[in-house]
Simulated assay, not measured.
Amino acid sequence: MDADLSARLVSLLRAAGPDGLRQPDRLSCGAASVVVARLLLADPDSAAGVADWRSEVLTTHRSLTGLRDHRGATQLPWPRALGTPPWAVARALGALTGRSHRTRFVLDRDAAYRRLLAAPMPAALYVGNRWLPRHVVLVVAVDPERVTCYEPSRGVATVVPRAAFDDARLRLAGWDVPWFTVTG
């Protein structure tokens, strides 16, 4: 399934054109990742894109940070100015895949990589600097040598070598340190 999701991501991005699936503001990377996951997991004929990308991502961001989730269940509200909380991304990916997703703090990068390697896709990865998580990417494929992900700040598919993960040199939207994995 990883190769399939990776190929679907490339097709989706190609169909959207330049900047077509770039996050609409600096706070919506988590929501953009969830919307792309939704598109990737949809029926291939319906995954050509979103009619109004910006509106879809911002609406999803409000849902992910609000008092109620997409199903109407109560969730811990979160200030949108702080981005998207990992537990909300986990809940949204779980709803899309039918598998419970779990957020885990990256204490050991090797263990975190192995967790991604063993996880069904898609998954999410929170990255930042050494003090704080600052950005979310959607992981669509992992093998022993690389991670392939949707990078919302540029709206592209990106490949991160395993060595860059191990050395905290991810360079995803300018952020290097893996902070959280969100896996099913």
Rank of each mutant, 00 (worst) to 15 (best):
V182I: 15
R62T: 13
L67F: 09
Q75V: 14
R109T: 13
G20N: 08
A37M: 08
S153V: 07
A31R: 05
R169D: 04
G98F: 06
M1Y: 04
G128N: 06
V106Q: 03
A157L: 11
M121L: 12
L117P: 06
V147E: 00
P24W: 11
T183L: 04
A95H: 05
P79F: 09
S55W: 07
D167H: 13
P144L: 08
D110A: 14
P178G: 11
T60F: 02
G155N: 10
S55F: 08
H70K: 10
R169T: 05
L39D: 04
P120L: 07
P44A: 10
Y113C: 07
L40T: 04
V136Y: 04
V89K: 04
G184D: 10
V147M: 13
S55P: 02
V159G: 07
R102E: 10
R38T: 11
W175G: 01
D52Q: 12
L67Y: 07
P161G: 08
S55Y: 06
G17I: 10
D52S: 12
G94D: 11
A163W: 06
V36E: 03
V177H: 07
V34K: 01
R26M: 03
V127Q: 03
S153C: 12
V140P: 02
H70S: 15
P161N: 08
R62S: 15
L132E: 11
L13I: 15
D176H: 13
V182Q: 03
R154L: 13
D167C: 11
R38F: 03
L13H: 11
L64W: 04
V140R: 00
L93R: 00
A88V: 06
V35L: 13
S28G: 06
S63R: 12
T97D: 04
P133L: 08
R114S: 12
L21D: 05
G72F: 09
R62C: 10
G30Y: 00
R54A: 12
V159D: 13
S33N: 03
